[in-house]
Nucleic acid binder design. Sequence first.
DNA 1: CATTATGTGGGGGAAAGTGGGGAATTGTGG
DNA 2: CCACAATTCCCCACTTTCCCCCACATAATG
Lengths: 152, 152
Amino acid sequence: MHFRGINNIAVDAKGRMAMPARYRDRLLEACGGRLVVTVDQDHCLLVYPLPEWEVIEEKLINLPSLNKQSRLLQRLLIGHATDLEMDGQGRILLPAMLREYAGLKKKAVLIGQGKKLEIWDEETWAQSQEEWVEAVQADEGNLPAALEDLSL
Amino acid sequence: MHFRGINNIAVDAKGRMAMPARYRDRLLEACGGRLVVTVDQDHCLLVYPLPEWEVIEEKLINLPSLNKQSRLLQRLLIGHATDLEMDGQGRILLPAMLREYAGLKKKAVLIGQGKKLEIWDEETWAQSQEEWVEAVQADEGNLPAALEDLSL
DNA sequence: CATTATGTGGGGGAAAGTGGGGAATTGTGG
DNA sequence: CCACAATTCCCCACTTTCCCCCACATAATG
């Protein structure tokens, strides 16, 4: 049961965003509509069904507290993780601070990414996409082990 | 049942800070509103429910006394640990000394971090956050083992 | 073309956050 | 032991934010 595909979405003046209808039933079933949003290093937002998030949070919390990298990750991810539920119309309210972080304006893009969804500002998304195509090609000779023998 | 998410919070002239409503019931239930505040190496404050703190304190006390790092940690954390309770309006009063340590002015930020909460001066938090995003990306190729295979 | 589903916008009531006055408590110095 | 000062706590009032509900626009379906 994974998320995939891309949606154009409007963010209204109050910071609300309509969840696409095809996801609503699944979300209600999987977690009673209880979601968690947090931020990503690439300045987009991540949306998890609560149970999925809890697994991740558990991993993060148990990282060594005296390691600097760990603390940074914890503060970024757990620190910004916000519980939210869909309202009667199947919308979610994105906290002001997270909208700022992701540079969200009126037009946004929602992308299915397996266990999670990603929310991007439309403009940012368009730009980043071009960069990635180039970046992936440039780095081809230089893959980590886990990617070396990936067959698509 | 963990703390997560971020809140903007005002610290008034008397040094009081309103605990966000969504935490209040949990805190009353978990520990009768009895909390412990102390300081962190990164110049923010840490807030624990009393039972959680007692576990931590026990670990700290049993660190090897002849190790310099241990002694520093003990003095920093145990030395600054202060008991406090929420008042009738769900606010806590932060001791002047701790406010100074964290450079708290009128505007502060409260972030959930699993078993504990962190309190930051707003400005400090904003600055640090930018640095972290860069730091995390810059060090990507150079992660501790615990982070290597973290899948979000 | 009519009808239903989906997306979008806004108004208003309730709840949470904020700030200050004054009583009670604690602590300090005489 | 008393007097004074500083701090802490409780209460009230104000402001802001959030959330529920209704209404309309737009798109999909028969």
